[in-house]
Design a protein around this nucleic acid. Structure first.
Length: 377
DNA sequence: TTAGGGCTAGTG
DNA sequence: CACTAGCCCTAA
């Protein structure tokens, strides 16, 4: 399966850029649950990666070597395990990864194992995880708050519709709140300065996170990386195949349901196609393979740990997202008219650039649509 | 980037 | 139910 996966990757996907290969490897190598054989398969399928840029990767590789050395039994008292571990630690590159204490405990296998466990636990988060945290995790509100409309669109693609809604909701654009509340908030904060505060409070309240920033994210990620490996049966990335003429027609027919809720599907006889593919949103049809977790495995020394059983289990489809609508303020309407007077109808880009504050959360298409609506009466 | 077609949440 | 405003999608 590993072989198949890597083969798949190398044949059906464009070759990974070195930087991306690095991220993949950095992420996978640092997950202790991923067996070394699997990592080796991955390495074979990726462009060459230099570990030198990432402490996490360096350390993960060193820890894997130590794990391998410590995996044998030392019950026979031959000292074989200890000798292997010493060999590994003799490598200055490995020793450099553990400046603190690990290199000191060279003749106590049990202590060494405990320390290796601790080192795994404290492995810094991968770039993937940090980035995910920035766009959909603890840092999401900041990132989204500072993103312009186009960037938000991209973010939305990445995190998926329901997560995007959740984040926007926390940013104070919650569609479930009464519109006048939204209006009031709008009027009160032309600058949006207090949005951040409120967002942060919301974030902490909703996510149960009271601690601060970077360290928090790190903790979070460190924890996640030791969590179960999930994998859908449909793990191949290109969810949306190259659009052929035939599928285009279908798509057009259904596309507008995409953002709508539980598409009523009236008068359309074909099956409802899912929302735009997102890298982070779960497909309703996805099947999850998951390590079963509920045991006290972490209490055992690493060499006695078993890889948990691989268990197939269905996940329910994600909650159906709702749409956010933002009413145009009077200022925006007036400015739009002024802009059209000044720059001419159709030069939406110019108008947007001319009044960046007013149209910060409006795309040029929004402006075009609004002007069309305004002209209808 | 823009124009235009079309869908739908929200409102009365 | 009808209508409108806001938004999305695609072609050009």
């Amino acid at each position: 399966m590993v072989a198949r996966a890597t083969q798949q990757a190398s044949t059906t996907m464009p070759p990974l850029a070195a930087a991306d290969a690095f991220r993949v490897l950095e992420f996978v190598a640092g997950n202790r649950r991923v067996p070394h054989s699997l990592l080796a398969g991955l390495l074979a399928g990726l462009p060459p990666v230099s570990p030198h840029t990432s402490p996490r990767l360096r350390k993960a590789i060193a820890l894997r070597a130590l794990d391998a050395a410590l995996s044998g039994s030392d019950a026979d008292g031959s000292g074989e395990v200890l000798r292997k571990a010493r060999d590994v630690l003799a490598d200055p590159g490995v020793a450099a990864c553990f400046p603190d204490h690990l290199a000191v405990v060279r003749d106590d296998v049990a202590a060494l194992r405990r320390l290796v466990d601790a080192e795994w636990e404290s492995l810094p988060p991968s770039e993937f995880e940090l980035e995910a945290d920035r766009i959909a995790g603890a840092g999401a509100l900041d990132t989204w708050a500072n993103a312009d409309q186009d960037t938000r669109k991209k973010l939305r693609r990445l995190v998926g519709e329901s997560t995007a809604r959740e984040i926007l909701g926390k940013l104070g654009q919650d569609p479930s709140k009464a519109p006048q509340v939204d209006e009031a908030a709008n009027a009160a904060s032309t600058s949006g300065a207090n949005e951040g505060d409120r967002a942060q409070q919301d974030d902490e309240a909703h996510l149960g996170r009271g601690k601060g920033e970077a360290s928090l994210a790190q903790e979070d990620c460190a924890r996640h990386q030791q969590e179960p490996v999930e994998r859908t049966t449909d793990a191949r990335i290109p969810e949306k195949p190259v659009t052929s003429a035939a599928t285009k027609g279908k798509e057009q027919a259904t596309s507008s349901h995409v953002t709508g809720q539980a598409a009523p599907d009236h008068n359309k006889s074909h099956p409802v196609t899912g929302p735009k593919p997102s890298l982070m949103e779960r497909k309703p049809s996805a099947i999850v393979y998951q390590w079963d977790s509920g045991d006290s495995d972490s209490e055992r020394p690493s060499h006695q740990r078993r890889l948990p059983n691989y268990e197939r289990r269905m996940r329910p489809p994600p909650a159906v997202p709702y749409k956010t609508r933002k009413k145009w303020t009077e200022i925006q309407e007036r400015t739009l008219i002024e802009g059209v007077d000044k720059y001419g109808k159709g030069n939406w880009k110019d108008i947007k650039i001319a009044y960046p504050d007013v149209f910060q959360d409006r795309s040029t298409v929004d402006m075009k649509d609004k002007f069309r609506n305004m002209g209808r009466h």
